[in-house]
Design a protein around this nucleic acid. Structure first.
Length: 255
DNA sequence: AACAGAGTCAACCGCAGAACT
DNA sequence: GAGTTCTGCGGTTGACTCTGT
């Protein structure tokens, strides 16, 4: 079916935003609210793509944006959430008030990612966990590369739908990487997936930070359990077998 | 002072799901 | 149901700044 570009690129400004453009965008959004990004530039008198306006607003102009260095607590939380969620920056950002997904992504790529890599090269691999895949250090560079590739995801929304196995996985010696039989999956209705992941956000940041790694994972599981068991329409076994959800946190088998 | 290389981060790009017609 | 548009996502780029020589 083909796609048209989000807007005509001719005659549009690109690159860094000027103070005047910022002012125009801010005052327009204050007067008319967010949304309708496609038409916004024309109405606001901006020679910008709607997408560009949206990004500028969300990442820079929003009044609730927190400027300045990432604190130690925030850093800690980013690391932990990244361990659990992988490169799902918008979800991670959702737990850090005033921080944007772009900011967190940049911070990870420039600071934390390198640090994790450096640490991985000097440390022996820690205990195995189904949640460690994203940042698990590895002894060989090849293995490290393979792991890193695993967590790379294409841009797709994971908040609208979540796939849950109808049958619990074989109780057997569960390998860290188990194949998911696509024929054995059920789709949760929209919102359910959002609720599952967002349930973690019921906890206070301080509570999450105080927790040990194990406790943190337990809180995460608890949140998922609470959500699954209170969400109508879910099969019992999906709700009671939390291990069956582990693959959601592993880049390997993300459907 | 001048240059090179590394680091940072705002902005862009393409993709894909949701919403609309 | 099919086609189209809107919106939001993660990956990547490139301009700018910082630091070391």
């Amino acid at each position: 079916m083909g796609r048209r570009p989000c807007c005509s690129k001719e005659g549009l400004n690109k690159g860094a935003w000027t103070a005047l453009e910022d002012k125009l965008l801010t005052s327009y959004i204050k007067a008319h609210g967010e949304g309708k990004w496609r038409n916004l530039p024309k109405r606001a008198g901006l020679k910008r793509c709607g997408k560009s306006c949206r990004l500028r607003w969300l990442n820079y102009l929003r009044p609730d944006i927190k400027r300045g260095n990432i604190s130690h607590d925030e850093e800690e939380l980013i690391i932990r959430l990244h361990n659990l969620l992988g490169n799902r920056w918008s979800l991670i950002a959702g737990r850090l008030p005033g921080r944007t997904d772009n900011e967190i992504k940049n911070y990870w790529n420039t600071t934390l990612g390198k640090r994790a890599k450096a640490q991985a090269s000097i440390e022996a691999p820690p205990r195995k966990s189904t949640h460690d895949v994203a940042t698990e250090p590895s002894s060989s560079p090849e293995a490290t590369k393979a792991k890193v590739e695993v967590i790379r995801t294409r841009a797709s929304r994971c908040s609208s739908r979540v796939m849950v196995p109808l049958q619990p996985p074989a109780p057997a010696p569960a390998p860290a990487t188990q194949d998911v039989d696509v024929t054995n999956l059920t789709l949760l209705e929209p919102d359910t997936g959002t609720q599952v992941l967002d349930s973690l956000f019921d906890f206070e940041i301080s509570e999450l930070l105080k927790a040990s790694d194990e406790e943190f994972e337990e809180l995460f599981d608890e949140a998922m359990f609470k959500d699954l068991t209170t969400t109508p329409g879910l099969s019992d076994n999906a709700a009671t077998d939390l291990d069956s959800l582990a693959f959601l946190l592993d880049g390997h088998d993300w459907p």
